[in-house]
Simulated scan of single mutants.
Amino acid sequence: MKLHVDNNPSLKLFTSHGDGYVAVNLERYTTHLLVLPDRVEPDWTRHDFAALEQQDFAHLAACGAEIVLLGTGPRLRFPHPSLQQPLMAAGIGLEVMDTAAACRTYNILASEGRKVAAALLIDTP
Results as ranks from 00 to 15, higher is better:
Ala119Ser: 11
Pro74Gln: 12
Ala110Lys: 10
Ala23Val: 05
Gly20Asp: 13
His80Ala: 02
Ala119Lys: 06
Ile122Pro: 09
Ser82Phe: 02
Pro37Lys: 00
Thr45Arg: 09
Leu83Gly: 01
Ile92Gln: 08
Gly20Arg: 01
Leu13Trp: 05
Leu76Val: 09
Ser111Glu: 15
Ala101Ser: 15
Thr124Gln: 15
His4Cys: 14
Val68Phe: 01
Gly73Leu: 01
His47Gly: 04
Leu52Arg: 00
Thr30Trp: 04
Thr45Leu: 10
Glu95Trp: 07
Ala62Asp: 10
Asn7Pro: 12
Phe49Arg: 05
Trp44Ala: 06
Tyr29Gln: 09
His17Cys: 06
His59Gln: 11
Arg39Thr: 14
Asp6Lys: 04
Glu112Met: 14
Val5His: 09
Thr105Leu: 10
Leu70Pro: 05
Asn25Leu: 03
Ala110His: 14
Val96Asn: 00
Cys103Asn: 00
Arg39Asp: 05
Gln55Ser: 03
Gly93Phe: 00
Gly71His: 00
Leu83Gln: 00
His17Glu: 12
Asn8Lys: 08
Leu36His: 11
Ile67His: 04
Asp6Gly: 01
Asp98Asn: 13
Pro42Phe: 05
Asp19Phe: 11
Ala102Asn: 12
Leu120His: 13
Asp19Cys: 05
Leu120Ile: 15
Lys2Met: 15
Gln55Met: 03
Ala89Asn: 10
Ala50Arg: 12
Ala102Ile: 10
Ala117Tyr: 07
Ala117Pro: 11
Lys12Tyr: 07
Val40Cys: 13
Asp98Arg: 11
Ala110Thr: 12
Ala65Asp: 04
Leu11Gln: 00
Val68Pro: 07
Leu13Val: 14
Phe57Tyr: 06
Val68Gln: 09
Leu109Tyr: 11
Ile92Met: 05
Gln54Gly: 03
